[in-house]
Computed example of a mutant assay.
Amino acid sequence: MANHDDRAQLIQLAEVLKRRDWPARIRQRGDRFTLTVTNPADEELNESVVCSASDNGLAYSVPGGQELGPTADVEKVADRLQNMLRSVRA
């Protein structure tokens, strides 16, 4: 069964990114939801984001475990994602 709390948190992050004109799309993969974020200046630069449990509650992370920040800090997580996707090719 899919975790709808995860989906709601990913929707919040997607809305922040879309307001900044960054494409963000939610997908369901198996029993998990993922958010794919794309650099609008270079569509090859993208990252998947999931929600996962952390010591401080629910957090955004990339598959494989790198934590991006708590879901309560959605603006900071959006900043971090944008910085990550801008600097990949730098």
Rank of each mutant, 00 (worst) to 15 (best):
A53N: 07
V88R: 09
N3R: 07
R20S: 01
I11N: 10
D31W: 09
D31A: 15
L85K: 09
T71L: 07
W22R: 08
G69L: 00
D42S: 13
R29W: 05
K18W: 13
G30D: 06
L35V: 02
E47H: 05
D6M: 06
D55G: 13
Q82S: 03
I11W: 15
E15S: 13
A14K: 06
K76T: 06
D31K: 12
M1W: 09
D5G: 05
Q9F: 14
R89W: 03
A78I: 04
L81I: 01
T38K: 07
L10T: 05
T38F: 04
G64K: 01
A2F: 12
A90W: 11
L68N: 02
P23R: 03
M84W: 00
A72I: 10
R80T: 04
E47P: 03
E47T: 12
F33I: 03
M1H: 15
N46F: 14
Y60K: 05
P63K: 06
T36P: 15
G30T: 03
V88N: 05
N3A: 05
A53C: 08
I11E: 15
A90E: 07
T38L: 09
R80F: 02
A72F: 07
S48V: 03
L68C: 03
L45T: 08
R25S: 14
G30S: 03
P63G: 10
I11H: 15
M1P: 14
E15F: 13
K18V: 14
Q66A: 09
R25H: 14
P63T: 07
G57Q: 04
E15P: 01
G57D: 03
G69S: 02
S87A: 10
E67G: 00
W22P: 04
Y60C: 06
V74G: 04
P70T: 10
D42Q: 15
C51A: 06
S87M: 11
W22L: 01
Q82C: 06
A90L: 00
E75D: 12
G64Q: 01
A78P: 00
Q28N: 12
